[in-house]
Design a binder for these strands. Sequence first.
DNA 1: ATGAAAGCGCTAACAG
DNA 2: CTGTTAGCGCTTTCAT
Lengths: 338, 338
Amino acid sequence: MATMTDVAKHAGVTKQTVSNVLSGKAVVREETRQRVLEAIEVLGYRPNLVARSLRKGKTSILAIMVPTIANPFYSDIVEEVERIAGEHEYNLLLCTSRKSAERAQNQLQILSDRSIDGLLLLDDSPISTELATVVQGQFPIILCNWEHEPYPDNFPVVSIDYREAGYLAGQHLLDVGLREHIAVIWESPAHHLRFQGVRNALLDSGVDLEAHHIIATADSTTESGYQAARMLLARRPLPQAILATNDLMALGTLKALREHGLRVPDDIAVIGIDNIFLGADAYPPLTTVEIPKREMAAEMTRLLLRCMKEEETPIPRLLTLLRPRLIVRCSTPHSVIT
Amino acid sequence: MATMTDVAKHAGVTKQTVSNVLSGKAVVREETRQRVLEAIEVLGYRPNLVARSLRKGKTSILAIMVPTIANPFYSDIVEEVERIAGEHEYNLLLCTSRKSAERAQNQLQILSDRSIDGLLLLDDSPISTELATVVQGQFPIILCNWEHEPYPDNFPVVSIDYREAGYLAGQHLLDVGLREHIAVIWESPAHHLRFQGVRNALLDSGVDLEAHHIIATADSTTESGYQAARMLLARRPLPQAILATNDLMALGTLKALREHGLRVPDDIAVIGIDNIFLGADAYPPLTTVEIPKREMAAEMTRLLLRCMKEEETPIPRLLTLLRPRLIVRCSTPHSVIT
DNA sequence: ATGAAAGCGCTAACAG
DNA sequence: CTGTTAGCGCTTTCAT
């Protein structure tokens, strides 16, 4: 590979001049500039970004750490982050924490060793703020998709108002006239805020959740939604509606209801949270609450970019919560006009 | 940040000795080693990977280029690649080509400028082998998930036998006694090999595809599957079975059949290809042909790692095709014993 | 406007 | 076994 010195020789100047031409920071005589440009062209010169990074102490590399990229929720976010990062001439390093604090710790350390310019951390395990402190000061870090309280105050946070998401789902059931025997399937403790939102919505209308209509699950797969729904169907009275704290569990619920020959929404209404891909193609198309993950991705990336530009350490206590919104499809009944 | 020289001073040695302790390549007296280790501990020293990369000409960074990461097919692969890369102390840079040859070109160039150690290229657009040639020689490149012929011979290829996938799907329909009025929905030209496989299976049993039962689509979303199925339902005779060249279109097909009050598989059988997440939770659970993408991911990563170890340029003409396998669920009838 | 020198932090090669 | 020297390719600083 041709180096900057090669170009300089070819153009009869020093590499400093070549550097000036490329950076555009210093003034170069037009004739010299042309000679340099021509030399670059002829030799097929390309700057060595590793060398540049070493010298400048900046790599123009961002990193994103997610629990897993196999989950479409996260891959959707990464898609957006990568796009925006690219627009600003940054490359994206992908890291997965995979439910292991130790792994996250190692990854974080390596990112620091690589002198990345910034990090988006999507892992709201309690320890992650501590971990992040280890490499704090090296580069800005934004905590994203934080789903429980208290919100950290040592890093900026960009997330969704998950309590509001639960509230919207609960409120919708009330709005279509369902006030009794509302069942909830929620992942505990991960979806605590969502669950709280649901309960608040009902309480605000004087409706109580009955203990035998609440099922807490250990994860939020279609399978656990399916099993939880079967448990609900074995109890009496049957629920009028089943609210699952995510769409995957809602889809599992739909499957269980189908197997029991129950019609949705006529016999039992179903609502989820997330608005995942394919919810619209389910049977019946799933009513849900959209989590604006793309907007969140855009917001957190922009904030990170901003923090990187400013020399000062980023705003520590800054909480940005995006608002979810209801998507009415066919798994809940139409509004009842009373 | 403490540098290697700092550690050296603290331990009363030169940085070369520190380097020796870290690399373990040269023998160091135990006492000295301990002093160095202690200094590292005390100062919290971490090697600067950018500097190391510059010096060694290797970054221990791999890159993967996919059309998009938002598609679960690709994110699933990336999950596996990242895991294996991590086990070998490599970080993963994520790039998306987003259907733009120009974009792919730029990304490739930048990857080269960054001195990455290897690339997994998942984009079988005809130009991608040309593009790859631009940076050829800098680092090994593996072409992955190549889905049409001819297979490139200037890079190693790891892919799936997509023709076989089509064949298995077609053969299954024959095996369960469906021999007439088989309809095919396929994305043209992307799924040409799959389509060819289907046709071969039928031809091998003397069954002909009828022109009015073939629908070519421009993409392979649930929506295009839905629309294609509606077209088929408007024609006579009605098909006995609908084979879609991917699961998303098969799910769209299921939706269209439901809306027409047709029972699956009693009235019309449906089969897809891919075995996507959620196919098992569809209504009815979808029979499909599994594309072993995880295995492919593992295989291509291992091959890349191997190419990187060997100093010689990687084996140019090497074609590895993984075999798909049939997954029978409920959208096709049970075997008929004749 | 251009050149000369220094150095980012590390490892390779050799000397002692 | 440890120290010295050199240099990866670039940008920053200062001199001309």
